[in-house]
Nucleic acid binder design. Structure first.
Length: 285
DNA sequence: AATCCGACCAACCGCGCAAGG
DNA sequence: GCCTTGCGCGGTTGGTCGGAT
């Protein structure tokens, strides 16, 4: 833990938050951390604007919130990003772009700021060194004979209008064991579906009525790797039901498991989120 | 030993959105 | 519908550290 001496206020541009007389800025001291953490433990988080005064801190609410969210929260995991976490960040960024909070929500214990920093300092450079554009996740110098693409191939390029779809080359080795699941789901309206980590759940059949925005999609042949991945990384408490729903039926999932994951349509670029409390899930978009 | 320089990351900044009046 | 307030997000800044020169 580093607690460098506070740098002078004149080195930063002033903002309304910090122009107030007497408010401290710059790195937090251990004493301030204790005050903030003990106050939130006692009174709970929220009401950030008035929290500093109530807690006895000479900080603006914004600064308190940031310190708590990114550093002091008990659920924040410190330490190196693990290889499987890195792989997940890459995959989620390929799908979601710079939506760091959304990505962080899928990686337990990691904050959006941490993931953003890790991306900017490590992963974007790693992709560039491999000839991959970190914004698009596509080769920077498109060349059919190039081996720069680290991602697996889409078996049917004609069904991949979504910019997130990855072009593949059989010369390219798989990066992780999860790549074997990368196949688009195609429903009977000709739309392609793919989940947030670029894998489908084995073979599938889809039934839908495009006019009323309702679909039934059946997934077969779940395997342990698939469920393990979903349970480890994509479970989320945020279950939202709307009047635009699609019903997902898990067939041959034995035993039924409760997981949370996201889907995206190639055609609409839409994120769908689903809770699977039993063998049925309701999606929103 | 001193200096330089790039990497890392905590913290700041400004904007957009949602809720409430 | 408009305005205010508070919160959350993504982009950016700049202090610290450690390796290279």
């Amino acid at each position: 833990m580093r607690y460098p001496s506070a740098f002078p206020a004149s080195t930063r541009k002033s903002t309304p938050c910090f122009t107030k007389e007497g408010l401290k800025r710059g790195p937090w001291t251990p004493e301030e951390d204790v005050i903030l953490a003990s106050y939130i433990k006692r009174e709970g988080e929220g009401q950030w604007r008035t929290l500093p005064k109530r807690a006895g801190l000479l900080r603006c609410g914004k600064s308190c919130r940031l310190r708590w969210m990114n550093y002091l929260r008990p659920s924040v995991k410190r330490g190196q990003i693990a290889p499987d976490e890195e792989d997940l960040i890459l995959r989620l960024h390929r799908l979601l772009g710079n939506r760091w909070a959304l990505i962080a929500g899928r990686i337990p214990g990691r904050t959006d700021n941490e993931i953003k920093n890790y991306w900017n300092s490590h992963l974007s450079k790693k992709l560039i060194s491999q000839g991959i554009d970190p914004r698009t996740h596509k080769p920077m110098n498109p060349n059919p004979n190039s081996s720069g693409n680290i991602y697996p191939t889409n078996p049917n390029p004609n069904t991949s209008p979504n910019p997130n779809t990855i072009n593949d080359s059989s010369e390219n080795p798989k990066v992780t064991t999860l790549d074997q699941y990368q196949n688009p789901v195609v429903n009977n309206n000709g739309e392609n579906w793919q989940n947030a980590v670029g894998m489908t759940m084995g073979s599938k059949s889809c039934h839908g009525n495009h006019s009323n925005e309702e679909y039934n999609i059946e997934f077969y042949n779940f395997d342990d790797t698939c469920f393990s991945f979903l349970n480890n990384y994509l479970f989320n408490e945020d279950i939202v039901f709307t009047n635009q729903q699609a019903n997902i039926v898990l067939a041959a999932a034995s035993p039924p498991q409760s997981v949370m994951y996201s889907l995206q349509t190639f055609n609409h670029g839409t994120i769908w989120e689903a809770s699977l409390p039993s063998t049925m899930a309701t999606f929103r978009r």
